[in-house]
């Protein structure tokens, strides 16, 4: 059952991710991206990572994408004009993609079938939100603090780059 769900959501996710790139209308692209995030959230749920799944829906599919759509509609973006296909670039891109797929198939095939010599996530008896919180705020405290600085820098950048006139 889980395997079927995995395939359904993976194919859905990849197809809608491709649609994000292929659609010419930005609104269609944004809606496809919402679908991608939802399918990804479903994949997390099938892996028992309920908290991450919920956050994925709330933050990405919800907040971030609403902002995206809001901006697209605010700026009234028109559909992209059709560009002439650059055959050389297309062939190069397909060659790289093909090579990557061949490589990754080879790597996955070479892995021993009993690849799960790692125990499945230890159940602590608490919710997974508790586990994530503990890991993030105690074990990975230093990287977490650095992310704080990173967010400060990003905020400066957004304010600086997006203001119409600096004061």
């Amino acid at each position: 059952m889980l395997t079927i769900l995995f395939w359904v959501f993976s194919v859905l996710m990849l197809a809608s991710a491709a649609a994000v790139v292929l659609f010419r209308n930005p609104v269609n692209s944004a809606m496809s991206l919402v679908l991608t995030f939802l399918a990804l959230a479903a994949l997390f749920v099938t892996l028992d990572a309920f908290f991450i799944g919920v956050i994925q829906v709330l933050v990405y599919a919800g907040a971030v994408m609403v902002l995206f759509l809001f901006i697209i509609m605010l700026l009234d973006l028109k559909a992209e004009t059709r560009r002439r296909l650059n055959i050389a670039a297309l062939a190069g891109g397909i060659a790289v993609l093909g090579g990557f797929v061949v490589l990754i198939t080879h790597v996955v095939k070479s892995l021993p079938a009993s690849a799960d010599h790692f125990p499945t996530l230890a159940r602590t008896g608490y919710s997974d939100a508790y586990d994530i919180g503990m890991t993030l705020f105690s074990d990975f405290n230093l990287p977490f603090q650095i992310i704080g600085v990173l967010l400060l820098v990003s905020t400066i950048g957004v304010v600086f780059l997006s203001r119409r006139s600096l004061r």
């Binding site: 990287p143 650095i146 992310i147 600085v149 990173l150 820098v153 990003s154 950048g157």
Partner: peptide, 10 residues
Amino acid sequence: FVSLELVTIT
């Protein structure tokens, strides 16, 4: 990863 991103985003 985190420190590299801090540098790159700046």
